[in-house]
Computed example of a mutant assay.
Amino acid sequence: MAASSAQARKPGTHGLLSIGQVLARFRPEFPDLTPSKLRFLEERQLISPARTESGYRKFSASDLDRLRFVLTMQREHYLPLKVIRGYLDELDAGRQPELPGAATGPIPTILSTERRFQRDELIREANASPQLLNDAVSASLIVPAELYGEPVLAVLKSLVELQRSGIEPRHLRGFRASAERELGLIESALIPVSRRKDASSRAKANELARDIAGQLEIVRSSLIRSALSRLD
């Protein structure tokens, strides 16, 4: 959806937020959000803020919901922008599409705000023991924090179920090593882009990294399904 069409459907800009106000609101949750990132998302037609007569961008409440959805899908599910945009285009067309390739956790709706949990709340929601969370942190499966998001809750719930089958967090230490190896592959692939230090190149490198991560996830899932088929 182009910016011109956004301007047509938003007749006024009174009460809307500027880029600076959007950054102030979002940076506690998304500290790497920058003006260049917002402009990049607009260029990719993922957000469509209105414009003042002077050309300044103005964001409505629905723009903020859409932006939060895009940023959450990138950060928590490592989805490339072209996948997210295709999903949003389907929503805009009045359909109810499935969002493919999400790495972990439930897919939020476009209007949802992700819940955050303190340690005790996380343990209670996951029906886990404090020791299990401690073991998950020791195995580098969960990064300790003051507040935890829903993807971490999904991981801890999975660890609860795995523990019932006799699989403990210590048995999964190799997962962190595997993730680090994949990160090395991604960093090597980004070298030609990351050498350029301008804001546009950084945004493109970030998007390419997420795209590669999504493709690696598809390969990993296929290998696991293939291995499981041999157990039949």
Rank of each mutant, 00 (worst) to 15 (best):
K204S: 05
A136Y: 03
D89W: 01
L71T: 01
P130E: 13
A102K: 05
P130T: 04
E217S: 11
I110A: 12
L71I: 03
R176Y: 13
I107D: 07
H171K: 09
I218T: 11
K10P: 04
A136N: 06
H171A: 11
N206F: 12
T104V: 14
L17M: 14
R230I: 06
R173H: 08
S112V: 01
L231T: 14
R115S: 10
E29H: 13
V137S: 01
D89N: 13
L183A: 13
R181W: 12
K197T: 14
L156N: 03
A2C: 08
H171E: 11
G105A: 06
R75H: 10
N206V: 03
R210K: 12
A213W: 02
P35A: 05
S36L: 04
E187I: 04
R51K: 14
S18K: 09
E161F: 05
P130K: 09
R202T: 07
S222A: 14
A139Y: 03
P130F: 09
S221Q: 15
K10N: 15
S200A: 14
L38M: 11
E168D: 13
V22F: 04
Q74E: 08
I224C: 07
K204R: 14
D65S: 11
A177C: 06
I218G: 02
E125D: 10
T13I: 08
T72G: 12
A145D: 12
I212M: 03
D65I: 02
P130I: 04
R196T: 12
P49D: 09
F26H: 08
R119D: 05
V137Q: 08
P108W: 07
R85T: 00
G149Y: 06
A128F: 03
R85C: 00
A103C: 05
P130M: 10
D89K: 10
Y56F: 15
L23D: 03
Q74Y: 01
L122R: 04
R210I: 02
R95V: 02
Q163K: 12
P144E: 11
L132K: 01
P151W: 08
R196A: 10
L17G: 00
A154E: 08
Q21N: 11
P97I: 02
R173S: 06
A61G: 09
E150D: 09
